[in-house]
Write a protein that binds this DNA or RNA. Structure first.
Lengths: 335, 335
DNA sequence: CTGAAAGCGCTTACAG
DNA sequence: CTGAAAGCGCTTACAG
């Protein structure tokens, strides 16, 4: 009844019980060769009887493969994170991989990741240094970058979204539909390239409408509520006038709205606020957020697909730009 | 210059280069025996020169230990998730463990997890069946349950928060300070015990104030915005009168507020809304959410601590109830 | 269709 | 303080 309390069964014990060699057990388990039906039958019974589960480390050692995908992050936070991880997890599982999470918060980055610990690595914006990327590349280790362009000489695939175009449409909307002119852009963290692309879209939209760029309206706000809120508070204190805020992302937008409310400015009547990402909470904040939808789960799934292709030495795209879409709700002034 | 493009160095190669035996390399790497300083010096140089990184699978096989902690989840979503995972990750890293994430969404639960794949398992409310818990217990496999009580005969440690008391204080506040009487309670998902404890706190608070419990006001709302929003919409359609909503958690509260706004009811003037958890976004929603603070990161950290104690065969608490704290902001009607 | 044997890359008694 | 050797639990040519 009580199966192997101490040592779990090994392939040897299963072999003995089934009266075959360990090789045969391996073959039925991995369908790696044809096995006589009666033999297979006996083997399966023995496996069940002993509750045998192959020891992953032993397989890893001989196959030189872990069936693990590493996910390298700078920080675990924000509303963007769950859907992205969900996408990665789902696609990884479908491909037969498990996920190993590394978060670097305040850690010195280290090359220890990957190599033999995982079969490939997905790195999130800013979580990895160029020099580390190079080392991986030299060793031909599979890597996919999320929201980050690799160095020229390390053409790893990367995936991100149509930031510029999305931002442009968003600002166009603010200008054309709502007649807004003094639009502040809250930059995200420096390590995030996406933020710079959004800035370009912002600038081009202004330009297209002959609105002069005002550097007072370009401020750093991070990708979180706190930082965005205080950036806006400071702007108000400084007496800078503005009638709209394009927050770095949706989390930042929530912080902006809160700061504005607290300062007695109504959203969207006094100030319009828009975000980026269309994170799950965005439709539920007050007022419902006008934003740009990024296919967050799809980003994660695509990253895994590209990684798996690399691991199988299949040809794979070098760059995937997922489309974004304007989502109009009420925080821009629309009803 | 270009270190080992193909096969990474093994301990044997390092040994040859340093003119010692592999055993010695192992000893300096693991500080598992005293090594002559000059020898150690040579070994370290050889390690650096070859860029040697020990193969984890080989160590795992001989040590029978993975240095991995498994995290078993039902679903990756919600604002609760990032801080919890952050706490788990931080504490695990400090203890020298990496994290393996398993999400069960729509998967048949399987005992394959753990066993030799990880050294211990943290399971989140509802992610594991009793029968699986039993199997782990029989094999004396280290497990810590989050927000879930283990079966009587499998006294695994578990950690959760003071749900009942927190809920009670919250409802007391609604009744005593704001004179609210028709308070609906939006239950979380069935698999979440926490929700039931919150319900008890809710009921006891009503009772303490001689307010009759009205089953019309007890409805299922899940722990996410969508479900909560539609539950409230339905309640309104059904013509049930209420002047406050205690949402299952903060995510649900955001959904409730949105649904109320959409129905033309002002929060908190017409209806007060309160949540549970004090997730990072809660102070930034409109109006800022009155809720009960759960020490989310601490939950994750504590779980890892209990797990590590088990793995080291140290004595360890069977149950940790983390304290909660009433957080009064504006969604209850306070200024 | 099946088995004997070597080997994956480490660690750890056991000797010296 | 150091080395030779066995062993962790699998997989896979190689034979038959």
């Amino acid at each position: 009844m009580n199966p192997q309390k101490r040592r779990p069964a090994t392939i040897i014990e299963v072999a003995k019980l089934a009266n075959v060699s360990p090789a045969t057990i391996s073959r039925v388990l991995n369908r790696t060769a044809v096995v006589a039906p009666e033999t297979e039958q006996r083997v399966r019974e023995a496996i069940t009887e002993l509750g045998f589960i192959p020891h992953p480390a032993a397989r890893q050692l001989v196959l030189n493969r872990t069936n693990l995908i590493g996910v390298l992050l700078q920080e675990i936070s924000g509303a963007f994170f769950p859907p992205m991880l969900r996408g990665i997890e789902a696609e990884a599982r479908e491909a037969g991989y498990n996920l190993l999470i590394y978060s670097q918060q305040n850690e010195k980055p280290s090359f220890q990741f990957g190599e033999h610990s995982v079969d490939g690595l997905i790195t999130f914006a800013g979580s990895i240094q160029e020099t580390d990327i190079r080392r991986y590349f030299e060793r031909e280790f599979p890597v996919v970058l999320l929201h980050q362009t690799p160095p020229q000489d390390c053409p790893y695939p990367f995936v991100t979204v149509e930031n510029k175009l999305g931002a442009e449409k968003l600002i166009d909307h603010l200008i054309e539909v709502h007649g807004l002119q003094r639009i502040v852009y809250l930059q995200g963290p420096e390590s995030h390239e996406d933020s710079r692309w959004r800035e370009r879209g912002y600038r081009e939209a202004l330009e297209a409408h002959q609105i002069a760029f005002d550097s007072q309206l370009l401020i750093r706000g991070g990708f979180d509520e706190e930082e965005a809120a205080s950036a806006i508070q400071k702007l108000i204190q400084d007496g800078v006038g503005f009638d709209a805020v394009f927050a770095g992302d949706d989390d930042a937008a929530a912080g902006v709205i809160a700061a504005l409310n607290q300062a007695g400015r109504r959203v969207p009547d006094d100030v319009a606020v828009v975000g980026f990402d269309d994170v799950p909470i965005s439709r539920f904040i007050t007022p419902p957020l006008t934003t740009v939808r990024a296919p967050i789960e799809q980003i994660g799934r695509t990253a895994v697909q590209l990684l798996v292709k690399q691991m199988l030495n299949q040809p794979c795209e070098n760059k995937v730009l997922l489309p974004t879409e304007l989502v109009i709700r009420h925080s821009c002034g629309c009803k």
